[in-house]
Design a protein around this nucleic acid. Structure first.
Length: 464
RNA sequence: GGCGACGUAGCCAAGAGGUAAGGCAGGGGACUGCAAAUCCCUUAUUCCCCGGUUCGAGUCCGGGCGUCGCCUCCA
């Protein structure tokens, strides 16, 4: 398996350091608002990375942090007249709900910044002791000039940064490029006691502290949105490596951003594409399929109508699974069709090849559609059960690596009334009373039950 | 000014030296009592433009044009 490493800007083979284990850390949400579709892109992508690595035999320890103390939270809380930590808790819960609806598998650890103040203090201590950080007023700053490799991830040079003068100067900083490890609390702000006075952690330090707590000094894979490369990830490297001398991250993965086409995203205008709202209209699987139909390192322009396209195409995948599942009920018990099984094997091999190549979900998705076509084309009523199961298991297995087609694909159960209506329609059809038959079909359709007449008899599915 | 990404059919999007995947939408047909589902055909002589390298270039190189991200705690 090869992956594009932002650090080296090259493709590299993923190898575990020991026992097939991989430690993976992804920057989670800052919980000051509901997550939007762009956030979801990152989370869905790394959820798939994690699933796929497991499928390929790695034992993945997956850590995602929740930033529950941060300037934006404080600002937002002030604006809403709410306690910052309460607001953070509220949006943390909302995030967890959205995550479930999106089918994100739970991380191995989901640490919150506010629960790791002790680890953060310890890390800051070490940085001060080693001469990489200085106390100034109630603030503690990381001295970027002391870390020779500063800029290795983003390609930014310290001189350019300072010369560019877009970094905020601060009265207690030695250099504008220095960044906060610990920020003194202003009146009314939430704070924790510390040796340097009451305050709160800087934004970057929590990730270093928590990543190292759960994954050790070296993290195998660290992911996040491309917008975090600088300064966030650059600073994580500086803090962590200055503290330990060990390589902090072996493979850096960054997803390109999702751009909102047309109107600019503006929270005050209320036209942000919040996942929570999209979920009212589309299932989590639809959103996943949409997000995964582009490669993670390509920018993606969000066109809301594309979710309709994704919904229609997801239905195609389900229909292929329904087809197999329906045939199974009428299929011969004996025998097997090796040729069909090897077609399924072929798709698994090609799917794996695509995913092995830097997680090319776009190509993988394309293969699922091709496989669906072949299923309809080649799998008929004569195919024995064993083969049907093999093909269905393969097809569903691949889909589920992407977290789609996870719902039951058997015939949905029916109410007594629905049974009765279908029975009456069959009788009507038997006597060629098409008017009655069509009327019943339309009535059931209105209730969301779609009838389909096949050579093997009627089958039904529920419309979403 | 510095770092970086992208520009492929009406829309979305793979492909990265060997002759344009896939999905949606549109058109035509097959199957069906009619549908639905499904299948087949059809929609890019061509991949933003101009040069160059090559037997051969969306694919490599150079130069434009355009869009976007980061460089002020946004995934």
């Amino acid at each position: 398996m090869r992956v594009h490493n932002t650090l080296t800007r090259k493709f590299e083979e993923i190898v575990s350091r020991q026992d097939n284990r991989l430690g993976m850390y992804v920057c989670g949400p800052t919980v000051y608002d509901y997550i939007h579709i762009g956030n979801a892109r990152c989370f869905v992508i790394f959820d798939v990375v994690r699933r796929y690595l497991s499928y390929r035999g790695f034992e993945v320890i997956y850590v995602m942090n929740i930033t529950d103390i941060e300037d934006k939270i404080i600002q937002r809380a002030a604006a809403e007249g709410e306690e910052p930590l309460e607001l953070a808790e509220r949006y943390t819960q909302a995030f967890l709900e959205d995550a479930r609806a999106l089918g994100l598998r739970e991380p191995t650890h989901l640490p919150r910044a506010t629960e790791h103040i002790g680890e953060i203090h310890e890390l800051i201590h070490r940085l001060i002791a080693r001469g990489y950080a200085y106390v100034s007023g109630g603030d503690v700053w990381f001295e970027t000039a002391r870390f020779a490799k500063y800029g290795k991830l983003s390609g930014q040079r310290l001189q350019d940064l300072v010369a560019g003068a877009r970094v905020a100067p601060h009265e207690t900083k030695r250099s504008p490029a220095d960044f906060a490890l610990w920020k003194a609390a202003k009146p009314g702000e939430p704070f924790w006691h510390s040796p340097w006075g009451p305050g709160r952690p800087g934004w970057h330090i929590e990730c270093s502290a928590m990543a190292m707590k759960y994954l050790g000094e070296t993290v195998d894979i660290h992911g996040g949105g491309a917008d975090l490369i600088f300064p966030h990830h650059e600073n994580e490297i500086a803090q962590s490596e200055a503290a330990t001398d060990a390589e902090f991250v072996r493979y850096w993965m960054h997803n390109e951003l999702l751009n909102l086409a047309g109107d600019k995203m503006s929270k005050s205008a209320g036209n942000v594409h919040v996942v929570r709202e999209l979920l009212q209209r589309y299932s989590g699987e639809v959103i996943r399929l949409y997000l995964l139909s582009a490669h993670y390192r390509s920018p993606l322009s969000f066109v809301p109508e594309q979710l309709d396209a994704a919904e229609a195409s997801l239905q195609r995948l389900y229909n292929a699974a329904f087809h197999l599942s329906h045939l199974w009920q009428h299929a011969p018990n004996e025998g097997s069709y090796p040729r069909l099984e090897s077609i399924a094997d072929g798709y698994r091999a090609r799917f794996t090849e695509a995913m092995d190549d830097d997680f090319n979900t776009a190509e993988a998705v394309g293969l699922l559609f091709e496989m669906a076509r072949e299923i309809h084309l080649n799998v008929g009523a004569d195919v024995p059960r064993r083969t049907l199961e093999y093909v269905l298991d393969t097809f569903l297995g691949l889909n589920r690596l992407l977290g789609i087609v996870t719902r039951d694909v058997g015939l949905p159960s029916l109410s007594d009334e629905e049974w009765e209506m279908i029975r009456r329609r069959e009788q009507a059809r038997a006597r060629r009373d098409w008017n009655t038959a069509d009327r019943i079909r339309e009535e059931l359709a209105r209730r969301g039950l779609i009838l389909e007449d096949t050579p093997l008899g009627v089958r039904w599915r529920r419309k979403e």
